[in-house]
């Protein structure tokens, strides 16, 4: 400990530039006030650890965990924001409300069914593309082809949702083309259905599937496949027995990301969906928009949704035989 602080003080002269002028860094380290602060804070590994740890831990536990814990706490109160002079009681009413009305359970079930279907759809669409990029292209062209896919994803949720509305509207491009080809005489009502919502969600989320898939496929060494071919495996067997198992990590991360992201969209279901496709995000948002004291119900419903999505993800990862912690590690 002592040696570190001595070195810091004495050797400061060593970083003086050759030409004799004193650089900013030399003056800083020679400054007595700075040296005192440095001795106090940076002189040992333990002190440096705590200096870094305390603000980081306060931020993480305060702001990353804080909002979720506050939401859970409020979900058990009978009123919030608190009215003057009255302490809110603890209650389970907000959670029981969810099970009492079908107009809450239906959007909830729908959200999970839709998100699961859209996730599987995205997986089946993106796997061939990731495979094409990672295994069928020369490395020099991979980046260009990948970049072409990336560009539309820099554009935000609202703008891309709107673009889908122009494509699918009653007087939209798709209907004009279909009518022009004589395939239909009247516009097909694509909009405000599960179809338009699915189009939109696939449009918004496919990149989150593509990137993990591409990363995992790209890592598979070419000679694994050559070895399998030498041992007599046909192209389908090579894919099923070598490529597919080795890309399991990418499939898992991609599916989890797309599932969690697609359950969390609010504007897209509002704009692309209709009354028959109300998702749980809209139900929850309803509690925060109408005037009046509905926050505890909204908080309880959000907690239910958060728990349900995390449990679904956990079960899915268990199904693939992975520990849930390994996803982030």
């Amino acid at each position: 400990m002592a040696t570190t602080s001595e070195r810091t003080g004495n050797d400061a002269a060593l970083i003086r530039p050759q030409d004799g002028t004193r650089s900013f860094w030399t003056r800083l380290t020679a400054n007595p006030a700075y040296q005192r602060a440095s001795d106090l804070l940076l002189s040992s590994d333990r002190r440096r650890f705590w200096l870094l740890a305390v603000p980081a831990l306060i931020w993480m536990f305060g702001t990353h965990l804080g909002p979720i814990l506050t939401m859970i706490r409020i979900s058990f109160l009978d009123s919030y924001p608190p009215s003057a002079g009255r302490v809110p009681d603890v209650t389970l009413e907000n959670y029981l409300l969810f099970f009492q009305a079908p107009n809450y359970i239906t959007p909830f079930v729908r959200t999970f069914v839709y998100s699961t279907c859209y996730t599987l759809l995205t997986l089946s669409l993106m796997y061939p593309i990731a495979y094409f990029l990672a295994k069928k292209l020369r490395p020099s062209r991979q980046m260009l082809f990948l970049l072409l896919l990336l560009v539309p994803f820099w554009v935000g949720e609202i703008v891309r949702t709107y673009a889908i509305m122009i494509l699918l509207g009653n007087r939209g491009f798709l209907n004009i083309v279909l009518m022009g080809l004589g395939l239909t005489s009247r516009p097909i009502p694509f909009m405000y259905t599960g179809f338009s919502l699915g189009m939109g969600l696939v449009y918004l989320t496919s990149l989150y599937m593509l990137l993990p898939l591409y990363a995992s496929l790209e890592k598979i060494p070419r000679n694994y496949l050559e070895a399998a071919a030498d041992l007599g495996a046909g192209s389908w067997t090579r894919f099923r027995r070598v490529t597919l198992p080795l890309s399991k990590d990418g499939i898992a991360s991609g599916c989890v990301l797309v599932f969690l992201i697609s359950t969390g969209y609010y504007a897209t279901p509002v704009l692309l969906g209709g009354p028959s496709t109300t998702v749980f995000a809209e139900t929850i948002a309803g509690f925060f928009h109408v005037a009046g004291d509905k926050w505890p119900e909204g908080a309880a419903f959000s907690t239910i949704m958060l728990l349900a999505s995390l449990v679904t993800v956990g079960l899915f990862l268990r199904l693939l035989g992975r520990r849930s912690g390994s996803l982030l590690g």
């Binding site: 909002p67 939401m71 969690l260 969390g264 995000a281």
Partner: peptide, 11 residues
């Protein structure tokens, strides 16, 4: 990893 709408509402 928290779904967007829940993140916004908890905030």
């Amino acid at each position: 990893v928290i779904p967007g709408v829940i993140s916004a509402i908890s905030m």
